[in-house]
Design a protein around this nucleic acid. Structure first.
Lengths: 249, 249
DNA sequence: ACCTCCTGGTAGATACGACTAACAAAACAA
DNA sequence: TTGTTTTGTTAGTCGTATCTACCAGGAGGT
């Protein structure tokens, strides 16, 4: 029932403002409207109303035309978001090998919305990697050095090769999507294509473990029609050849 | 320069509408306004304007008072989002062990904003796990069976124990945050606390590898003040004891 | 043939978050 | 002291996305 009772629930944009103020105060000692605007990539005119709202919520102390400082509660919220940002960035970059710039950008949109549970799992992942360096090397190393993951990888250590299913029971059941018989279904195992073609195929929903049925092949053999998630779509033959599937699902 | 030239760039909300229509058409054959509203958890009055905008963009075919169907382009966009949703959900659930409901919810907010690069890395992770079952077992298995990750885990296979840094060079440098000397700094390795306390600490920015300095201990020993990211905060002694740090950073 | 109910559409309100343009207040310079 | 520049505020506008309340058009039932 306190006056700053949660009327507005701290939107993503406001969280970003808090995070920016947090970093400015830490790095420069003070946060000025101009610097906040610059850091967030918005115009100064957009900052004032945001600060006013944050002040009304009790997250910042903010005298008109004076410096901005975080209240205890604002500091709490800022640190939470800031911590999430850092851990998500590290995860994307260090574990998934996303480039640093993209990792930071993606982290920035994820950090506001992700559940506590997911954050906790991520923390546990890092704790595991840290507590178990052997495991970290064996797992992440294997993942990172796999040619599937990094085309310029040195070698895989023998556990996984460019060929799929090596030494597994499923080996004989693997083929290219284009090699399925019409009417036959398969489960996507791997997209060999790279670049824009790969992106296009991923966008279509051709993702690991998607069930796909080869419906029809054009007389010339070139466009092939497949059925995916109840919808039909057509692929170039060359594209279909890059999609490894496990037959007979 | 076609009439449906990208005037509006398909907002997250509109992508959600497309995804919902996609699923309704697939499961029931048709998408009605009422069902869309129900599935998305909004009122029917909110659906009509959204459909009109989607129709203007050429994403859906939509005669007033008739059924809604996806255009080829709408189907493409929907499949992209739907595929992302599925893969993100699987990742959160199968790799990070997030509960299915939370995984779906988190995936739903991430799917619209995440970069192609990050999605591609995720796809590669699944491809790796699939191509390299041995690696998957050794890596994920080790991760999932680690007591750090799942308190009810059977056993860790010896590679990681409840104690941190077993057999590593850093072992002797580990201690609880509360055992640092005033002025000494350390690097967070693990938060032993669980539940709400754990959440509070994570929210504060006490995340793996954060550098923390013990500033001062109250005479009674109970609140301890630490410095984190340039800010001071105070912890209960019991909380500080659950934080494992690597001394002397 | 008529009435009723269900579904869908419209209009107006609200909230957020950004923008631009014009204005006010310090800070600085001459 | 008196401009001039920098900085910050205000007011008005736009676009998105939601809501509520009310209206229209058909499908049934009687």
């Amino acid at each position: 029932m306190s006056p700053e009772a949660v009327a507005s629930p701290l939107t993503p944009a406001l969280e970003d403002y808090l995070e920016t103020i947090f970093e400015l105060v830490r790095d420069k000692g003070v946060a000025r409207v101009k610097d906040i605007a610059k850091a967030r990539g918005v115009k100064a005119g957009s900052v004032s109303p945001a600060l006013r709202r944050l002040a009304e919520m009790g997250m910042v102390r903010y005298e008109l035309r004076e410096f901005v400082t975080l209240s205890a509660e604002g500091e709490r919220a800022a640190r939470r978001v800031y911590g999430r940002h850092g851990l998500l960035t590290r995860f994307l970059h260090e574990v998934l090998l996303v480039s640093p710039e993209t990792a930071a950008r993606d982290a920035c949109v994820i950090e506001h919305e992700i559940s506590n549970e997911t954050m906790d799992r991520l923390v546990r992942l890092f704790e595991f990697l840290r507590a178990c360096p052997e495991g970290a090397v064996s797992v992440l190393g294997r993942f990172h050095d796999c040619p599937l993951v990094r085309e310029d990888a040195p070698d895989c250590g023998g556990a996984c090769g460019r060929r799929l299913g090596v030494g597994t029971a499923k080996e004989e059941a693997m083929c290219a999507l284009s090699d399925l018989r019409p009417g036959e279904r398969g489960r996507v195992a791997r997209i060999e294509a790279s670049g824009a073609v790969r992106q296009r195929l991923l966008d279509m929903g051709l993702l690991p473990d998607a069930v796909v049925e080869l419906e029809r092949v054009a007389p010339a053999g070139d466009p092939v029609w497949i059925r995916l998630q109840g919808y039909q779509l057509s692929l170039r033959r060359a594209e279909a050849r890059t999609i490894h599937v496990q037959r007979g699902v």
